[in-house]
Design a protein around this nucleic acid. Structure first.
Length: 268
DNA sequence: ATTAATGTTCAGAA
DNA sequence: TTTCTGAACATTAA
C-alpha cells in the first residue's frame, strides 16, 4: 500500500491542539482530554489506510482513527485554510512536525481505540475487507445475492471498504455494466470484471493522489491537488461525449440520493 | 433569495 | 435480515 508522506512520519507526540473555532466541534471520542492522556509522549509507529479511514498506531498500541467523510483530510504542513482546522498533533523531531486534521464541513470524526476495542470494532462488521486486499471469492460472495442496483451497492462499506461515489461510477463504466443492473442479475464473470476494475481504478487513482473536484476540497498530504480527475471517464461529465462509444452523451441520474454518471449506450 | 449539489455514513424505520 | 430515508455541516453555483 502506498502511504505517501504519512507513511514516513516518525517521532513523539508533543502536544495536541483543538484550535478555537466558530463552528460546532467535531466528534472526538472518548474525549479530547483522553487523547491527551493516552497519546502525549508516545511515539507514532505507523500511519495506514483502512478503507476510507486513516489509522495512526502509537507506541502504547492505541489506534487513533480519523474518518474524514465528505470534506476532511490530513495534511502534514499547510492546510487549505486555518478556519477549518479541527485537530493538530504536534510531533517532536522532523521529518514532519505536525499532523493536521482539516474538515470543511465538520462531518468527520476522530476516535481513539485500544487494540482490543479495534479488534472488537472490526469483528462487528460495519466495515468489510479493504478493496485492495479482498480476494475475489469473498468479494463475489458479498455481492452476488444482493437485490439492489450494483452502483449504490459498491458504496456499502460493510461489503468492501474503500469505494466512494465517483469511483463506483468509474468502475461500472470500465466494465460496460449498467449502474442500474441489480447485483443478483450479474454473473460470476461480470463480478470478476467489476473486481478487476475496482482494483485497477483504485490503484491508479492512488498513484495520481486522488481526484480534486471542481470545489477543490480534496488535497494530498502536502495540500496539493490530486490529478485523477483528469482520468475520469464519466464522473462529472454529464452532457459530454462518452469516450468509449464516441456517440452517446454521458447522463447523470440519482441513485440512493447520490449522483451516478454513465453511458446508457455502452453500459448494459 | 432559495434550492440543490458536494470523494459520507449513521440511526431509525419500513 | 435487508433496504430506504433523513440528518449531521459548510460552501458554492444555479
Amino acid at each position: 500500500m502506498r502511504r505517501g508522506l504519512f507513511g514516513t512520519v516518525q517521532g513523539t507526540i508533543q502536544s495536541i491542539v483543538q484550535p478555537p473555532s466558530d463552528y460546532r466541534p467535531i466528534s472526538i471520542l472518548p474525549s479530547f482530554k483522553e487523547l491527551e492522556r493516552r497519546l502525549l509522549g508516545t511515539k507514532i509507529e505507523s500511519v495506514d489506510r483502512l478503507g476510507k479511514r486513516v489509522v495512526i498506531q502509537n507506541s502504547n498500541d492505541d489506534l487513533l482513527v480519523f474518518q474524514p467523510k465528505m470534506a476532511g483530510l490530513l495534511v502534514s504542513d499547510t492546510p487549505p485554510n486555518e478556519k477549518h482546522v479541527r485537530l493538530v498533533l504536534k510531533i517532536a523531531n522532523a521529518p514532519s512536525e505536525k499532523i493536521i486534521y482539516w474538515d470543511q464541513r465538520g462531518l468527520g470524526n476522530v476516535k481513539l481505540f485500544s487494540r482490543t476495542e479495534m479488534e472488537e470494532f472490526l469483528r462487528a462488521g460495519s466495515i468489510g475487507p479493504d478493496a485492495l486486499s479482498i480476494e475475489f471469492e469473498q468479494f463475489y460472495l458479498a455481492f452476488r445475492d444482493c437485490k439492489r442496483p450494483v452502483k449504490p451497492t459498491l458504496l456499502d462499506q460493510s461489503k468492501v471498504a474503500g469505494v466512494g461515489n465517483l469511483y463506483a461510477s468509474e468502475i461500472v463504466h470500465a466494465c460496460r455494466i449498467s449502474p442500474l443492473k441489480n447485483c443478483n442479475e450479474l454473473g460470476r464473470k461480470a463480478w470478476r470484471k467489476i473486481y478487476d476494475s475496482m482494483r485497477s481504478i483504485l490503484t491508479i487513482a492512488i498513484e495520481h493522489e486522488g481526484s480534486t473536484l471542481s470545489d477543490g476540497t480534496y488535497r494530498n498530504s502536502k495540500n496539493n491537488p490530486g490529478s485523477y480527475q483528469n482520468s475520469h471517464k464519466v464522473y462529472d461529465r454529464a452532457g459530454e461525449l462518452c469516450f468509449t462509444c464516441g456517440k452517446n452523451l454521458i447522463e447523470r441520474i440519482v441513485q440512493s440520493q447520490r449522483s451516478t454518471f454513465y453511458c446508457s449506450k455502452c453500459q448494459k
